[in-house]
């Protein structure tokens, strides 16, 4: 009886997880294909871009060949965004692991 309840509960959790996780994609290996670092726009310009988005910048770092930004958007939501270091185009935005924006020029 207990085993049955246990298995049912685990199946329900797994199902609910899959349902609510459906729009999310991998952010572990985002590749911007940005080429040599000497062509990258400086960090200061990246910061200005974040400011122009209307976001509150929490942290900015280089992740692989992308600029990775941790910020709070206009609604106060914690977000993680990837920008192309050469064009400073906003490529991807995640909210707690769920993808909420993908640039039309950035293929899956």
């Amino acid at each position: 009886m207990h085993n049955k309840v246990y298995r049912l509960a685990l199946a329900a959790i797994a199902g609910a997880t899959l349902l609510t996780a459906a729009p999310a994609y991998a952010d572990g290996n985002v590749q911007c294909k940005s080429g040599p670092v000497k062509n990258w726009k400086p960090i200061a310009k990246m910061k200005k871009k974040v400011w122009m988005e209307g976001w509150e910048l929490l942290k900015l770092q280089v992740e692989g060949d992308c600029y990775e930004v941790y910020a709070r958007n206009e609604s106060g939501q914690s977000i993680e965004a990837f920008f192309h270091p050469v064009t400073l185009e906003k490529l991807l935005v995640y909210r707690r692991g769920s993808e909420i924006y993908r640039s039309p020029t950035f293929p899956k």
């Binding site: 609510t20 996780a21 999310a24 939501q77 707690r96 692991g97 769920s98």
Partner: peptide, 9 residues
């Protein structure tokens, strides 16, 4: 507000 996100709940 974040409670409904799978990674959070």
């Amino acid at each position: 507000d974040e409670l409904g996100i799978a990674g959070i709940w």
